[in-house]
Design a protein around this nucleic acid. Sequence first.
DNA 1: TTATTATTTTTGGTATACCAAAAATAATTT
DNA 2: AAATTATTTTTGGTATACCAAAAATAATAA
Lengths: 219, 219
Amino acid sequence: MQKETVENYLKTIYHLSNGNAQVVSNKALADRLGVIPATVTEAVKKLHGLKLVEYEKSYGTRLTTAGAKMALDIVRRHRIWETYLATELGFGWDEVHAIAEELEHVKNDKLIKKLAEKLGNPHFDPHGDPIPDEKGKIRKSNFIKLSDAKPKTVYTIMGVTDHSPAFLKYLEKHKLVIGVAVQVRSVEEFDHSLNVVCHKKRIAVSAVAAGCIIVAPKG
Amino acid sequence: MQKETVENYLKTIYHLSNGNAQVVSNKALADRLGVIPATVTEAVKKLHGLKLVEYEKSYGTRLTTAGAKMALDIVRRHRIWETYLATELGFGWDEVHAIAEELEHVKNDKLIKKLAEKLGNPHFDPHGDPIPDEKGKIRKSNFIKLSDAKPKTVYTIMGVTDHSPAFLKYLEKHKLVIGVAVQVRSVEEFDHSLNVVCHKKRIAVSAVAAGCIIVAPKG
DNA sequence: TTATTATTTTTGGTATACCAAAAATAATTT
DNA sequence: AAATTATTTTTGGTATACCAAAAATAATAA
């Protein structure tokens, strides 16, 4: 099996299994990888032969310890590159994913180590997703969407998931920028918009906008 | 034909043809690519179908304008990455080639442009090899090995092609470092060692050492 | 010019990663 | 439980990139 094929399967199994907690179906894998289920059946059998997944007929697939280790390494490479492209080369958050998708397949531990060092060995990428360390250890992210925030708790804005000029202008206007403290007062039952306190002023944030704002509990 | 296969063939044809001046043989390609000549026959036929090479049975292969353009772009990517790895990430000159061999296949013009800009759009890589610009234009290098230097002409040391500690120590001792002016006084017929003037002192440089020192005419 | 050697091409065959369609199995709904 | 629907697997088939061995061609030496 080709290195890149193996990597893409492992990575996808990892993502679909929510950090290797669940078994994933062939159908789900097929959809995500853009192939038909028959192709997945073949592939997971081979991965099983390589001892990278547990696999039993008509049941599903789960990463072995070895498989999970490889998957975590790929995720690390991907997210280090994303961070590097955004931070050091000035790419937009929306551009980095596609490029990292290719760069992640270049396996060279020293290269990733040097990139990570230059970035100060970050634990999270610009999207707020955790970056596994060299041993595959993940620091649990406490980043959530503002729309999922608990009322009363005070949060800090950590990022956004939409980068359209219109949205960024909207944020600017309300000073909803990175580092700002926000608190949800109440949720409108009707349209799920939020009453948010920010800079000691109350503002209304639509459900759509709140879904694009990433926050973490202040502390 | 797969993108990476195409790129490796074009790059190799480019290198073996000395900047697309000569026709290259299947045998030479096979040796360089680590495959048998039969495989090359197949491949060049396909490249011909893609109009990337001119090819006539039992004669040889040469890049078309389109093929040369692609080859130059690959060479550019390779050498920009080499320079970046050495300059920005602190890799040794001996390490960069292998990594660049993988990175060169990531095709993203904006990425290469940003890397090049960060490096000040260099025309030569750390080995002294020219970096084609975005249009594929190459600035002719006037770098030569010290062993090929004309007597009397004054040269500047631009780099080395050996990175062993022993050699670097030797250079250090004689202050034969980058930027230093050197002049060949004479060549020993017996062992081809050079009598070189450097820092106003005469020193003897063996043929082996002179072959590892890169110089350019001072000017 | 004829041998001899080297190179190139043809022919037949392998492994990979995919697909389409049919068959088998599992999960849902009625 | 039976029928329907969804998923998984099997079967047969494609294209790619390779190889080994034989045949054809070109180049070099005698």
